[in-house]
Design a protein around this nucleic acid. Structure first.
Lengths: 321, 321
DNA sequence: GCGCAGAAGTTAATCGATTACACACCTATG
DNA sequence: CATAGGTGTGTAATCGATTAACTTCTGCGC
C-alpha cells in the first residue's frame, strides 16, 4: 500500500479512501491512485483490513458431514445467499463428532468470523453457550440444542410423518421398523417421537448414527425381527438399509415397504422409486444465512420452521403415479 | 493479550512466548500466564497473528461443484489430510463458472491462504498464471490447464477406458454413444480422446457440461441416433442419462448398455448395478494436499497420476458376479 | 571482590490496513 | 479585508499479535 501511495504521489490515507469509495478524493487523484494500483498489481491485505475494522465479511458454517448430500445442499444454499450479500463462507466438517465440532467452532471464532451457522452434532448446549458468551452471532441449523437461546432454522416433518404413519397402518402393516437418528440429537429424537406416536404400538425402533453402515445393521436387525415396513430417518442410513434389503433379495414393496427421510436425485431411479419425506434444503440454507445476517446487523430474527413434504413414489405400495 | 499480561504480572512478550511454547519462560511464570488465560477466557486473535507471521495455516480449495459427490469426497480428503498437518481448509464453490472461480481465487489470495488447490473450470491458463505471479503455492487437482507449470494431481482413466472399449466392441456394439465433458476442460477432452481412439469409428460423441440436465439431453440425442451403448464421462451426467433411459422405458443392458465415469455408493443398488470407472477420490484429495504442503515447505513435488479402475457390474451386459 | 556468561523478562518496532484529527487552501460573506 | 466554512490530503494512532534488541539479575570462577 505504501508503494502504491508513493507511486501515485499521495499518502496511504488517500489510497485507502479511494479503495473504500469515500467521497473525499478528487476524480483526478482517484485516477492516479487507480493507475498505480493497476500498474503494481496491488491487492489489499484482507487480514490487515479485518484486524483494523473487526469485520471479516465471513460466515462460519459447521456441518455434521460434507459427504451427506443433505448437508452439501445446505452448504451450497448458505454460500449462495451469503455471497449475494458480499459475505464469504468457511465450511467446517465435524464428521458427526462433537469433539471435532468444538475444534472447528473455536478455529472459526479465532479467525473472527462475523457469525456462525451450526448444525450441532449433539443436543448438548455447552458449545452454543461458549459461542454466545463470546458475543458472536449464532444461528442453529437443522438441529437444535437443549435450552437454545439463539435463532433456529429447521424443517418440520411432523405432518409428513403422521401422513406416512396413517398410510402404512392403513395398508395393514402391523410391525413397522423405524431406523432413527441418535437419541442425543434433536432431529433424531423428535422425528422418532412423532412417528412412533402416530404409529401407536406397532413401531420397533433401532437407533443409528446417521451413517450408511449403521443403516444396514439396523435394517438387518429389524428385518430379522419380522417387520414388513421400514422407515429410515436419514438418507445415508437409507442407503445402508437399501443395501441390506437388496443383499437379502427382498422385493420392495412386496416383501417390505420402505420410506426414507431426505430426498435424493437418484431415489426416483430405483425400481420401485423410493417414497420420501423431502426437506426444503435450499430454503433452509438460505433462511439460515438470512437469519444470521440479520443477527449480525443487530436485528432479532425469529426462528424459522419450514415444512417437509411427503413424496409418494411406490416403495410403500401406494398407487403408482 | 494486554489484559492477560497485566493479570499475570508480566509483559505481552512473555505471554506470547508461553503461547508459542518458547523455551524462555520459567515453569512458574508459565503457570501464572496459563492461569490468567484460563481465567479471562482469552483466545488469541488469528488475524493479528497471521498479519505478523505472514502465515495463516490455511489452504484454499476451489472446486467446480460442491453438489457433485466426486468433489465432495475430494474436499473431505483434502480437509482430513490438511487437518492432520495443522492446516485448515477454506472451500470455494465455483459452480463450473470460470468467472466465479476467478472471484474465489482472488478472495482466497486476499485472505492470504498459504497455498491453493484448484480444480480449474476451463483449461485457460491465465488464472493459474495470476496465482503463480503472486508467488502463492498452487497445485492443480483433477484437471490441468494448457502449459501448466505447477504440480498436477489427477486420475488416469486411459487403461480403464481402453478395457471398456474393448469389451463394448467385443460385445458387438457398433454404435456407441459417448457423453463427454466440455471440450475446454482437460478431463473432458482427454477421456473422450482415449475412448474414441480405442473405439475406432463406432463412437458418436455429444458434449455435456458435467451437469445432470446436460446428461439427459445428450442421452436423448444419442438414443435418437440409435446407439446401443452409452458411456457417460461424469456421475452427474450419468444420473441424467439414467433418467432419460428410464423415462423411455428402455431396459439396461438389453436395450442399451451403460457405463459411467465416477463411482457412486448407490450405483450397485440399481437393477442392474451400473458398471463404472472408479476414481480414487480419497487418494487424489490426500495426494493433492500433501503436494501442496510440500510446495509450501519449499520442496518441489512431482505430478501425481493415480489410476482409475474399471468396475464391471452388469449394466454393460457382462457376466454377473 | 570483580568480571562475565547466561537466563528471564521487558521495550518497542513491525505486519498492512483504517480513520480521527490537523492542516492548508479556497471561496463566499459581512 | 478579515473571517467563517468547505474541501481535499496528510499525519499518526490503532487493531493484536511476534520478535529483535536490550536490560536485569543470578551465580560462578579466579
Amino acid at each position: 500500500m505504501k508503494d502504491v501511495a508513493q507511486h501515485a504521489g499521495v499518502s496511504t490515507a488517500t489510497v485507502s479512501r479511494v479503495l473504500n469509495g469515500h467521497a473525499a478524493p478528487t476524480p483526478e487523484t482517484r485516477e492516479r491512485v487507480l493507475a498505480a494500483i493497476e500498474e503494481l498489481g496491488y491487492r489489499p491485505n484482507a487480514l490487515a483490513r479485518s484486524l483494523r475494522t473487526t469485520s471479516t465479511q465471513t460466515l462460519g458454517l459447521v456441518i455434521s458431514d460434507l459427504l451427506n448430500p443433505f448437508f452439501a445442499e445446505i452448504a451450497r444454499a448458505v454460500e449462495d445467499e451469503a455471497r449475494s450479500h458480499g459475505y464469504c463462507v468457511v465450511i467446517g466438517n465435524a464428521d458427526e463428532s462433537a469433539e471435532q465440532e468444538a475444534t472447528y467452532v473455536r478455529t472459526l471464532l479465532d479467525r473472527r468470523v462475523d457469525g456462525l451457522l451450526l448444525c450441532p452434532a449433539t443436543d448438548d448446549p455447552s458449545l452454543v453457550r461458549e459461542v454466545s458468551a463470546g458475543g458472536v452471532p449464532l444461528v442453529l441449523l437443522d438441529r437444535t440444542v437443549r435450552g437454545a437461546t439463539c435463532p433456529v432454522v429447521r424443517a418440520d416433518g411432523s405432518e409428513a410423518l403422521t401422513a406416512l404413519a396413517r398410510r402404512l397402518v392403513g395398508a395393514g402393516h402391523s410391525r413397522i421398523g423405524v431406523i432413527a437418528g441418535p437419541p442425543n440429537t434433536s432431529t433424531g429424537r423428535e422425528r422418532t417421537d412423532v412417528l412412533t406416536g402416530a404409529l401407536g404400538g406397532v413401531a420397533r425402533v433401532v437407533h443409528g448414527d446417521f451413517r450408511q453402515e449403521s443403516g444396514s445393521q439396523a435394517a438387518a436387525k429389524l428385518i430379522d425381527d419380522g417387520v414388513t415396513a421400514l422407515v429410515v430417518m436419514d438418507n445415508l442410513m437409507g442407503l445402508g438399509a437399501l443395501g441390506e434389503i437388496r443383499a437379502r433379495g427382498l422385493q420392495i414393496p412386496h416383501d417390505i415397504a420402505l420410506a426414507v427421510f431426505d430426498d435424493q436425485p437418484w431415489f426416483p431411479l430405483l425400481d420401485p422409486p423410493i417414497t420420501v419425506i423431502a426437506q426444503p434444503t435450499v430454503e433452509m440454507g438460505r433462511a439460515a444465512a438470512r437469519s444470521l445476517l440479520a443477527l449480525i446487523n443487530g436485528q432479532q430474527p425469529d426462528d424459522v420452521r419450514l415444512t417437509a413434504k411427503l413424496v409418494l413414489r411406490g416403495s410403500c405400495g401406494e398407487a403408482e403415479l
